[in-house]
Design a protein around this nucleic acid. Sequence first.
DNA 1: CGAGGTCTTGACCTCCCTCAAGCCTTGTGG
DNA 2: CCACAAGGCTTGAGGGAGGTCAAGACCTCG
Lengths: 243, 243
Amino acid sequence: MTTLFPAHELKNICAGCSLRELCLPIGLEHDELSQLDQIIKQRIPVKRGEALFRTDDPFRSLYAVRTGFFKTVVLSEDGREQVTGFHMSGELIGLDALGGERHACTAIALEDCEVCELPFEQLESLSKDIPALTRHFYKLMSREIVRDQGVMLLLGNMRAEERLAAFLLNLSQRLGARGFSSSGFHLRMTREEIGSFLGMKLETVSRTFSKFQTDGLIAVQGKQITLRDLPALKQLLSGCARN
Amino acid sequence: MTTLFPAHELKNICAGCSLRELCLPIGLEHDELSQLDQIIKQRIPVKRGEALFRTDDPFRSLYAVRTGFFKTVVLSEDGREQVTGFHMSGELIGLDALGGERHACTAIALEDCEVCELPFEQLESLSKDIPALTRHFYKLMSREIVRDQGVMLLLGNMRAEERLAAFLLNLSQRLGARGFSSSGFHLRMTREEIGSFLGMKLETVSRTFSKFQTDGLIAVQGKQITLRDLPALKQLLSGCARN
DNA sequence: CGAGGTCTTGACCTCCCTCAAGCCTTGTGG
DNA sequence: CCACAAGGCTTGAGGGAGGTCAAGACCTCG
């Protein structure tokens, strides 16, 4: 098997990565990017069902999803799990442990994935040369906090149909931003995982999908979803408080 | 009116502040602390009902609660509010905007308060001299993310009694850590605000308080709460999944 | 091709929301 | 300092959204 590219080309990952705009949306000079390249371990494969890390694992690295789809879950004391998020290409996983000693959630691959590993210690020392990096991580973390607050609003105030509509629209928007179709997509997670994330039972998820289909809002074929009436879905959200 | 202390004494706030262990639990040298003192505006009063900042206000500073009690809220599109947290002395508010341009929530004083203001730009430049500061903010933010994930678990998995028990135990623990009584305290927030935070209606909050009282778990007199049976309250949480 | 996981649908039930009425607390102005 | 208003709290009755249990269909992957 011959190598098509010389090693130094293969090594230059961030500069050539189409996801750079998502991972590192900061104006880095070319030599700064290659500094980053030096410390990032690229394209680590993670098989479907495998954990990227688990709760209480020592925190060493952040991970950028390159291809594939992850869920993060936290476990309650009695062992039940709450899905806290779904993560697709260009998104960083592990921010909940940044600066701490141990991971606070478990990240599981929902399909065969590739990730880039960003070792935190090296990132931290690189931050001395590239101040924008620190600012960038502040921004990523605050965005994560805001996202979580949005989920709290969803869980605290919305009814089942509104939750599922919000979920579908969010997926659609994120897929669209990555150049995929925003109106038709394949769900990587089960009804149970959707339900766990949205605070409802899998039967309710299934029923609500069916109702949306009956109402002509979407088409459902197992995990294949087609959004048929975006305005109506968005409409569902405008009155998103329970009272 | 005479000044009891010379100005340079008054200025030395962090070093003499009893909350330092909570705000800045990092081993800072004395001269580092006085560098911090230079940039921190101390003891800003905020009257009950007033906003420390509002959603979309430009982000300039973090705030450390010195005395008093705050709530943070986010507003849904149609104007209903979700309480995302309650904040007491020694806790930092504004992390959801750190690194960003604008605040993502509104912080309201639930009683007359005093806060210390930490201007972000000056904090950032100070971080070049004190590397531990950056690490500290990473830690604070990741802790906030973990806290939010805990709330997601609560909202997604728990029933009314479990939510309220979790809420009371959390308050108790935080008050205890500050040297206040952990078994008897005065609620600063209304039933409606508790309900908003916990994803239930104020009537359900009230009913659940009454039930806890009937069961001998707590004593309720308006906003005055006494925890009477801590083990039983904790017991409620051990089976904290709905299924 | 068969087994196990996943999904759908139905029937029933429960928890919590809704609406309503009245009481209590707090703050303000006379 | 008292009276009253307005907000906050409690409690009851009734109903509905979604949970629970169950049965069967449908994938999908070894």
